[in-house]
């Protein structure tokens, strides 16, 4: 099928098999490897991207459902080489260790802040609860998201 959708604010048009996952589409077809593959069954969140404002697991999203959607990936967070407030907060709060869960974490956090610019700690934990991290114990990540929210409001 011919697929047209918006990826990180830019229109994309390509020929794909409709039963290909969005994750394969990003990684294999578009060579955008920022979105990570880990469990393949929607249980780890490493492949989280935002589609039409909602966080989704790219490994469970079929290309056939993508036409006309707005997709954001980790590559869309920084603008002109400048880190977004959220990315900078992850650096400042030491929220990154191995970094493999980081793109997915960032996208879940971004989806939260789009809807809820002033989340409580409990809301942050809930928003990140579909993203497994083996390195950090989540503390630094939760702090970073909270700090980014505060920065966004100031």
């Amino acid at each position: 099928m011919k697929l047209e959708f918006i990826l990180n604010d830019k229109p994309v048009s390509l020929e794909v098999e409709p039963d290909m996952t969005l994750l394969d589409l990003l990684r294999e077809r578009l060579q955008m490897t920022g979105t990570k593959r880990s469990c393949g069954v929607g249980e780890c969140g490493a492949c989280t991207v935002i589609v039409d404002g909602e966080p989704v697991n790219a490994c469970l999203y079929l290309a056939g459902q993508l036409p006309g959607r707005w997709v954001y990936t980790v590559e869309g967070l920084s603008k002109d080489g400048k880190l977004s407030a959220l990315q900078q907060a992850f650096l400042d709060h030491h929220a990154v260790q191995c970094g493999f869960c980081t793109p997915g974490m960032l996208m879940s956090a971004k989806a939260l802040l789009l809807k809820n610019p002033h989340p409580t700690e409990a809301e942050i934990r809930r928003a990140l609860s579909g993203n497994l991290c083996r390195c950090t114990g989540y503390e630094a990540i939760v702090e970073a998201v909270g700090a980014a929210a505060e920065r966004g409001s100031s």
Binding site: G34, V74, E75, L77, S78, L83, G99
Partner: peptide, 9 residues
Amino acid sequence: DVREKVTGE
């Protein structure tokens, strides 16, 4: 090493 990890690079 973390800057490239938050940009997906």
